[in-house]
Design a protein around this nucleic acid. Sequence first.
DNA 1: TATGAATGAGATTTCATTCAT
DNA 2: TATGAATGAAATCTCATTCAT
Lengths: 224, 224, 224, 224
Amino acid sequence: MTLQVTSARAAAMRKPKAPEANRARILAAAIAEFASRGYKGASMDAIAARTHTTRALINYYFGSKERLYLAVLERVYAEIRDAERGLELDHLPPAAAIRRIVDFTYDYYVGHEDFVRLVVAENQARGRHMKRFPSLRTLNRPIVDLLGRVIARGQADGDFRRDVDPIDVHMAIAALGMFNVTNQYTFGTLFQREMGGKGNVARRRQMVSDLVLTWLAESAGQPR
Amino acid sequence: MTLQVTSARAAAMRKPKAPEANRARILAAAIAEFASRGYKGASMDAIAARTHTTRALINYYFGSKERLYLAVLERVYAEIRDAERGLELDHLPPAAAIRRIVDFTYDYYVGHEDFVRLVVAENQARGRHMKRFPSLRTLNRPIVDLLGRVIARGQADGDFRRDVDPIDVHMAIAALGMFNVTNQYTFGTLFQREMGGKGNVARRRQMVSDLVLTWLAESAGQPR
Amino acid sequence: MTLQVTSARAAAMRKPKAPEANRARILAAAIAEFASRGYKGASMDAIAARTHTTRALINYYFGSKERLYLAVLERVYAEIRDAERGLELDHLPPAAAIRRIVDFTYDYYVGHEDFVRLVVAENQARGRHMKRFPSLRTLNRPIVDLLGRVIARGQADGDFRRDVDPIDVHMAIAALGMFNVTNQYTFGTLFQREMGGKGNVARRRQMVSDLVLTWLAESAGQPR
Amino acid sequence: MTLQVTSARAAAMRKPKAPEANRARILAAAIAEFASRGYKGASMDAIAARTHTTRALINYYFGSKERLYLAVLERVYAEIRDAERGLELDHLPPAAAIRRIVDFTYDYYVGHEDFVRLVVAENQARGRHMKRFPSLRTLNRPIVDLLGRVIARGQADGDFRRDVDPIDVHMAIAALGMFNVTNQYTFGTLFQREMGGKGNVARRRQMVSDLVLTWLAESAGQPR
DNA sequence: TATGAATGAGATTTCATTCAT
DNA sequence: TATGAATGAAATCTCATTCAT
């Protein structure tokens, strides 16, 4: 930013300091910055400042602001996929497994606001980047398969209704969990409700399980 | 930019054409622009161009970009409150009234993406404007009172469970309805689901009613 | 500034509230504003705000920003001329009369910073307005005649040197008095001296008299 | 202004030509511009035009208009300090040394109107920048020490009065010298006097020496 | 591999002035 | 006599990107 006038600059001495580490630090800073300010609001300079590098270096590593943003999206989706893969549900009865999935999802959103904000930002951008870059289109999510297996077990037990699409269930869980984070400011202000990670998180989270489980249990075992 | 000295400039014809109409057109264009691009991304020039006016005129009317944005927020919240007030539910049985509320809310979001996007943008900005301007903090919403009355009737009939907070119910309805719009791009792409106003809207909307009603009906009439 | 949209505006009722009083208030506000911020820095809006009028009205009264500024200059020079005319010196011995002139001038500058600032601003503008408008060029100042008479009396008494130009004396008095006001910020900061109306004003003022009187007295009564 | 989307812009040839020279040219142009038009009146564009660079480059070098202005102030004060340091007075008798100081100061102001105008402008701004930036507050000036030594020698010889504060003497010299430059337009017009570098500069300058020296000599050698 | 230098586009805001009424 | 409406011209600052080294 500031210019230092060195009359005779020594162009020779350069200190190549672990490019991978640099890259990782830039990516972490970019996640925070894009999550915090959105794509347009994010500043390459701010990211450079957070990492003690320069705009030029970031462009050198990632090519452009947009490609950096893509790397960010890829990273946060990879992380949630990894986390979902860690869920062990097979030893749980179906209803308990559903509660486990809901709790995991709800808590993940509460604990990873950056992820939530990035997803929202991408939607506000109408999925522009996701559309243009195939690498982001193929990201599927383990959570749907897990849900599918649990639901099947519940149906086999006669505890869950029969006409259930796992994606619908995931949508409901995600919607209820995300709203707690995404709309915390307007909803909290308008209705005097603590939201996000504040207030009675456990209670709000349990309501999500209850909603899903009562719906799954309805008419189960009855001819339709 | 240019340094040439325009000593005496000839000001061209002015046509003062109905200031109210101008103001209204500017506000409408601002709603679209802010909803489409967010606060930072929105351009005063774009709004001026959409309305065949100038940046200076917009500042003359609204004072600054921020105040224009506030006028936008106030307007869209006023509109949804007005719409909610138009709901007539007293002649409907409780369960039907709930369905009516859900349908109304769901359809309002689908039909007013601008509103949804503005709410999301304000949340992404961490409610900065809502915090700073008292006029936006006092906006309450009729929907909660309506819900409260319907729930009370259902409880009186013994059809709804007893421990129900209307704000919780509104939160669930809003969450499920908003997600359909707010996350349509990422969710739609990742799980190959048509979202927003596309695909089987009625089916997704009905699932919301079902979720809420099965939850409301649970344990009703039983001692707790 | 703000726009109030009155659907059907009553163009009839106007309240003509003493145009002269308005004009005077505007002029007073303009003196303060131009003195405070300089010609370029002064804002027509600020003047309008100080007087609860509008930019348009000011232009209506004075024609333009420049003509308003001219009226300001004329006014403040008229005021100092009037004040100078009030000086009664004939009954004082020459040396005392000189002290009286110095004190008056010094105190006038200290008590009328607006005047001083306007004079400085006009000089910073290289006398542009004074040059262009004849009405400002003819402003002479009674102080020089007063000084001339006092000096003549002192010379007649043999107390003052012979080769004295009253304008030179006025220049010295004005320079020493103005500097106290005009350079108070830089000089005060750089040399830790209270200046302007602060600190030991009487002492600084007396040094001016002393300087002038010792100079006037030098070689007096001696053949040259 | 224009809304057209320049998707991929072809950046033209750049010629990085000696950053130090650029910086120096910008600073020189800034001195002239700020001195000529004051802080507010100065235009970054004008400075850019004078140096065949761009506003953006100036911001790149100096950060902002204000910081550029600070660099200007620092520079001109550094220059006068350097010039003052060059004065050699020890071989001169006290009275002659005083004349030398007066002549130097008077001529410096006449020959460096930019410096004088910048000092005046900063005072008109009420020392805002000097206050805010510590680097400008610590600027002291060698001239006061020089004066102090000369005065002490004169007192030791019994030629100068005893109760003398060198800062007071400098104030008088500066006031009389600056007035010749700062008020040249109004004073010259009102009293038909050539001022600044015009007219009988030597005569006006000598009057300053005379004033100071007669005052310094007064009561010298007498018990007080 | 890395970076300082440089740039052009774009964004908001201020402001004096003018016109129709 | 007075004013609301409207405007064009500046002015500053930010920013992503690129080039030469």
